[in-house]
């Protein structure tokens, strides 16, 4: 037991990866299951706000792009459930926990997509924030999670660029279209900042996660990186970020910005965001009405296997 723990500590200290069949502390395993499941659920629930616009996207090109993006998010969910399963949980069990609200997903997906500009802003800000969070996870100490993140990050860049391109088209359009982009940015800015999680002082698990090499940067470090990246992108669109406190700080070589409303964040996490109930109800409906398909596929597979056995 002691020898195993020493081996684990040495592997982490040497910045080597932990693999599924290695011994690991129970708390490490639990932390990873919680984080990876939460991440997988976010990808799956995240299909809903964007899926809402596939039929209404204004051209075949935009429909095809949005469809491909939403399909990617389903794929991301699958990579992540597969990574979680290497830790000894079952995907079915995780889905059940999601629809019983026993596990969480990112608070951002509890906000509604009210206009088509939201599709552009989600690609730009929400996928942009996701990229900031996810790039360091490619070096996570748990091998299967890190490898899933590498695949995901390769695909995310298309997500962000399609969103930004869509916004460029809109800001170069009519006044009404420019206003739509500004209004959408105003709504998504604060929830996007919340995607990095609570401020460091209020994030008790960060230290342990960093010691284990699961996390590489604190929430506030990543949030700062996102703000600094986004400011010139907003300028190029001719869009104002809705924070009068957002100014360049020469001394810190970084932007000062206003913290989002953390009371709202906590309320949304706790279940009272604008769309929490709708998102879970939809996921439950999809899961339950798909059950006959899953059962039929098993019945068919069993029948085929029996036939083959009889023929052999």
């Amino acid at each position: 037991m002691d020898g195993l723990e020493t081996q684990f500590d040495e592997t982490i200290a040497a910045d080597q990866r932990i693999e599924p069949r290695d011994w690991m502390p129970e708390a490490y395993r639990k932390t990873l299951i919680r984080q990876i499941a939460q991440h997988a659920h976010s990808e799956i629930i995240g299909m809903q706000p964007e899926g809402n616009w596939i039929l209404r996207a204004p051209s075949l090109r935009r429909k095809a792009i949005l469809l491909a993006k939403v399909q990617d998010e389903a794929g991301h969910g699958m990579y992540l459930y597969a990574a979680a399963e290497t830790l000894g949980v079952d995907r079915e069990e995780l889905t059940e926990k999601l629809i019983e609200s026993k596990q969480k997903y990112s608070s951002i997906f509890n906000y509604p997509t009210l206009t088509y500009a939201d599709i552009g802003v989600i690609g730009w800000l929400v996928d942009g924030a996701a990229i900031c969070n996810q790039v360091p996870l490619c070096r996570c100490s748990y091998g299967p999670y890190a490898r899933a993140m590498i695949r995901i990050c390769k695909e995310e860049s298309f997500h962000q660029r399609q969103g930004y391109e869509l916004l460029l088209a809109m800001v170069n359009g009519t006044d009404a279209q420019r206003e739509m982009v500004q209004e959408s940015t105003n709504r998504w800015w604060w929830p996007s900042l919340m995607m990095f999680g609570p401020p460091d002082a209020d994030s008790p698990n960060t230290q342990q996660s960093m010691a284990w090499g699961i996390k590489r940067h604190t929430n506030d470090e990543l949030r700062q990186r996102f703000v600094d990246m986004t400011v010139p992108q907003a300028a190029a669109l001719g869009i104002t970020l809705p924070d009068p406190g957002l100014v360049w700080n020469e001394e810190r070589s970084a932007h000062d910005y206003t913290e989002p409303d953390w009371t709202e964040f906590k309320a949304v996490i706790a279940g009272s965001g604008p769309c929490n109930a709708q998102r879970i109800a939809h996921r439950r409906r999809a899961h339950e009405s798909g059950s006959w398909v899953r059962e039929a596929a098993v019945a068919y597979a069993e029948k085929q296997a029996a036939k083959q056995e009889a023929a052999a």
Partner: peptide, 11 residues
């Protein structure tokens, strides 16, 4: 590259 669930080999 990873894993997945399916009812049979073809799926």
């Amino acid at each position: 590259v990873g894993s997945l669930h399916a009812a049979d080999d073809e799926m």
